[in-house]
C-alpha cells in the first residue's frame, strides 16, 4: 500500500492489484484490531458485562440469530419506508417552494426554523400520538430526514446558470417547462447527495424511534439486552445496525450512479 500506487486508477489496475491495494489494508487492520481487542479482554480478564470480547459478541450473534434477524427485518422495513417517505416529501416541498414564489417565501423560513428543533426529542410525543407500531417511526424519520433532501434539491434547482434560463425564456418557455426540463434534472446530482445523507439519518431515526417505544426491532433489542445486562447481545445488535446503515448508504450510492451517470464526479478523467 505505497503512496505512489494510489495515483493509479482502478480501471488500469489488474484485479489482484486492486484487491491488494484497496481491500487488503483495511481488512488487515480490522483483523489486528479484533485480535488485540480479544487479547486485552482475556489478559486483563475484563468482565463481558463491561466490554465483551469479539468472540463473545460472535457467540451472542449465533445464539440469538433467529431473533436478531427478525428484528433486523423490522428495523430495515422502518428505515426503507421512512426513507422513501422522506425523499418524496422532501422533493415535493422543494418543488413547491421553487414553483410558487409566495409559498416559498412563506415556507422556507419555517422549514429552516423547524430544522433547529431537536427532533430526536419529539420521539416520545410521536409514540404518545401514534402508538408503538410503524407509524411513529416513519414520522420520526420523516421529520429528521426530509430536510437535507429539500435543501440539496433547492440548491441544485437554483444553481442553474442564468443565461440558460435567458435562453429558455427567449423561446417562450413557461416556468413549468424551465422547472421540468432544466431545473429538476439539473438538481439530480445534488438530490442524490441529499438522499445519501437522508439514508444515514433514516437509520438513526429508526433506532431512536425504537428506543422511545417499540416491541420489536434492533433498537428494541439493544434496549432489552441492556436491561438484562447482556452486553454481548447489545454489541451483536449494534453490529447489525451498522450493517443496515452500510447497506442503505451503498444502495443510495448505487442509485446515484444509475440516475446521474453524467454528473461530474462520475465523468472522471
Amino acid at each position: 500500500m505505497s503512496v505512489q500506487s494510489s495515483s493509479v486508477t482502478p480501471r488500469e489496475m489488474p484485479a489482484w492489484r486492486f484487491v491488494t491495494d484497496r481491500w487488503l489494508p483495511p481488512v488487515i487492520l480490522s483483523v489486528i484490531t479484533l485480535l488485540a481487542w480479544e487479547a486485552v479482554v482475556r489478559i486483563f480478564a475484563i468482565s463481558p458485562f463491561i466490554v465483551p470480547a469479539p468472540s463473545a459478541v460472535a457467540e451472542a450473534l449465533a445464539a440469538n440469530w433467529g431473533t436478531l434477524l427478525q428484528a433486523s427485518i423490522v428495523t430495515a422495513e422502518e428505515i426503507l419506508l421512512g426513507f422513501v417517505v422522506s425523499v418524496v416529501a422532501g422533493v415535493a416541498l422543494a418543488l413547491l417552494i421553487v414553483r410558487f414564489d409566495w409559498l416559498g417565501r412563506a415556507l422556507y423560513p419555517l422549514v429552516v426554523l423547524f430544522q433547529n428543533v431537536p427532533k430526536v426529542a419529539l420521539a416520545p410525543i410521536f409514540i404518545l400520538w401514534f402508538g408503538y407500531g410503524l407509524a411513529p417511526k416513519i414520522i420520526l424519520i420523516l421529520v429528521i430526514a426530509f430536510f437535507p433532501v429539500t435543501l440539496s434539491m433547492l440548491a441544485g434547482m437554483e444553481s442553474v446558470d442564468r443565461s440558460l434560463v435567458s435562453l429558455m425564456n427567449s423561446v417562450g418557455a413557461s416556468r413549468s417547462q424551465i422547472l421540468l426540463r432544466i431545473r429538476v434534472p439539473h438538481s439530480l446530482p445534488n438530490l442524490m447527495a441529499g438522499m445519501k445523507i437522508a439514508a444515514t439519518l433514516s437509520v438513526i431515526g429508526a433506532i431512536v424511534g425504537e428506543f422511545a417505544g417499540a416491541s420489536d426491532g434492533l433498537g428494541y433489542a439493544i434496549q432489552f439486552a441492556s436491561t438484562q445486562l447482556d452486553t454481548p447481545l447489545v454489541f451483536a445488535a449494534l453490529l447489525l445496525v451498522s450493517v443496515l446503515g452500510i447497506v442503505f448508504y451503498y444502495a443510495a450510492e448505487l442509485l446515484e450512479r444509475l440516475v446521474v451517470p453524467w454528473a461530474p464526479k462520475f465523468s472522471g478523467r
Binding site: D161, S163, L164, S166, L167, S170, I182, P185, H186, L188, V260, W262, A263, P264
Partner: peptide, 13 residues
C-alpha cells in the same frame, strides 16, 4: 432570434 453566450450551457444529461 438565436442567442449564444460565453458559456455553452449544454445540458450535461
Amino acid at each position: 432570434i438565436g442567442l449564444v453566450f460565453q458559456d455553452a450551457n449544454l445540458l450535461p444529461w
